[in-house]
Amino acid sequence: MMKEKIRTILHEVKDPEIPVLSIEDLGIVRDFFIDDTNTVTVVITPTYSGCPAMDTIEADIIKALEEAGFKAKVKTVLDPPWTTDWMSEEGKRRLEEYGIAAPVKGSADKRTLFGKSPDVRCPHCRSMDTQLVSQFGSTACKALYKCIDCLEPFDYFKCI
């Protein structure tokens, strides 16, 4: 019961940079537990090591839990390192609706020098005929693509 309640609260905490995704959708929340003093400890892991949203996320978690009457603490762990494989299917769907192409599975880290680029679907017209413009985008987690069919540029949530 308590666990379900906390889960619901955490589901309402959004990524400050991509507000359609909850931190649960992103796979940032690794675990949480309640101790004897009724303090909830939420274990989170950063997406990117320099992600400036992590401090905001931590503050938002504590605020949401405190508003629901809990005492709250956040603990950050690094290992195992975050991967886009932990993003929920529901999260991927909402990401695409929001105009950001979802990470393509299997195009992960080892493709350095120079594995194949992932086949990324245009979130506007769903064409697969898309092209990488820049490996880096407006935030640490995104790359910039353009669609050859509808000519729109779009963000791609890069796969790591």
Binding site: D79, P80, W82, T112, L113, I160
Partner: peptide
């Protein structure tokens, strides 16, 4: 292990 994924991405970019 956390840093390596990022470094791999950088190495591809600069090369």
């Amino acid at each position: 292990r956390k840093s390596f994924k990022e470094i791999a991405y950088h190495a591809q970019f600069s090369a």
